[in-house]
């Protein structure tokens, strides 16, 4: 097991080099002058030139890359051209927002997806099975940006039930600890803030979680069906064990692994889907931030943010792989 983890970690090195190189070079190719976007349309040519010098934009690319990587290893992710603030600081306020959104979306997806999948499998061909599987089919085909807009239209514009944007209402106060609002409000026992931030996260998380939810529901159903047909379940039935016990103790245990893989792979989708969801719901997260930074060619921000997202994504995949190995008795750790 340890060997496996070490080998996997070593394999990450070329990936990180490649990812950083790609993030770095992609953005240098974007047409447009970052100095100009920083100073705006009232800058003189001389002002632009002195800024370019300051940022090292006129150095050869390999030199720029070398400088950048040296900084990264010293924990310096650079400074945003737009805001002059350190990228680390910029990201540290936004990443928790994105993680909160993604995790809540994933929780929705797992809870609803697994439940729907199990019930559909157990009550195969029932009306519930048909409805939830049709729903899941629509779910995997869903343009989530459209779904988000429709939710806003229904729940915010028409019914006035839920707030259309943001993380917290203005009048609500919250002591920030982790910048994950739901967690912070729980930690400080602030129920008003918890309710308020939950109302804010409900729509974006559901929209973002729709596709994973559908995938998980379908996956759960089919793995459960396979397991339910196996001999030991029939034996359990024959022994007269309570039905819910059979399902949860035996069946779900065996269906757990394939579901785990799906969950792992969906997390990457969530990080990507966050760009669209955060745009629609004005969620101050890292997805929208990186998209806007790409548009305004804020090199240091895009480079470092993409690097962080990629590292995060790769690590999550690694963890699911390791968990998979850990839980799967058939695989030996060589």
């Amino acid at each position: 097991m340890i060997n496996y983890i070490i080998r996997r970690l070593l394999l990450l090195i070329p990936v990180f080099i490649g990812v950083s190189l790609l993030a770095f070079s992609l953005l240098r190719l974007i047409p447009g002058d970052p100095a100009k976007s920083m100073l705006g349309n009232k800058a003189t040519a001389a002002q632009l030139q002195s800024l370019r010098l300051e940022l090292g934009l006129d150095d050869p690319l390999p030199v720029q890359y070398k400088d950048y990587m040296e900084d990264v290893f010293q924990g310096d992710l650079g400074y945003s051209i737009k805001s002059h603030d350190s990228v680390l600081e910029e990201i540290s306020t936004r990443l928790p927002a994105t993680l909160e959104l993604s995790v809540v979306a994933l929780i929705f997806a797992i809870v609803i997806g697994v439940l729907a999948g199990i019930i559909s499998a157990v009550k195969r061909n029932s009306w519930f099975d048909h409805v939830s599987m049709t729903g899941a089919l629509f779910g995997v085909s869903m343009p989530i940006f459209w779904l988000g807009l429709m939710m806003i239209w229904l729940f915010s514009v028409t019914l006035h039930w839920l707030p259309p944007s943001g993380r917290l209402s203005v009048g609500v106060h919250l002591q920030l600890i982790t910048n994950i609002y739901l967690l912070d409000s729980l930690l400080t026992g602030n129920w008003q803030a918890f309710k308020d931030s939950f109302e804010h996260i409900l729509m974006p998380a559901l929209a973002l979680g729709t596709i994973p939810m559908a995938v998980i529901a379908r996956m759960t159903r089919s793995s459960m069906l396979e397991v339910l047909n196996q001999d030991f379940i029939r034996t359990a039935h024959a022994k007269g064990l309570a039905k819910y016990l059979i399902i949860f103790q035996h069946a779900l245990k065996n269906a757990f692994l394939p579901i785990l893989t799906v969950i792992g792979s969906q997390f990457g989708f969530l990080l990507g889907g966050a760009v669209l969801t955060e745009t629609i719901f004005s969620w101050p997260g890292v997805g929208r931030y990186v998209y806007q930074s790409i548009l305004s060619r804020d090199y240091p921000v895009v480079q470092s943010t993409i690097l962080i997202i990629a590292v995060l994504f790769v690590l999550i995949n690694l963890i699911t792989d390791i968990l998979y190995k850990y839980f799967d008795p058939r695989i030996r750790y060589d």
Binding site: W161, G171, H173, Q175, T188, K195, D196
Partner: peptide, 20 residues
């Protein structure tokens, strides 16, 4: 939560425990 009426309340200071 879905039964809640108004998403946003505008009461200041007195509702929340601490101000950020």
């Amino acid at each position: 939560c879905s039964s809640g009426k108004d998403a946003a309340t505008q009461d200041n200071g007195n509702g929340g425990t601490t101000a950020a």
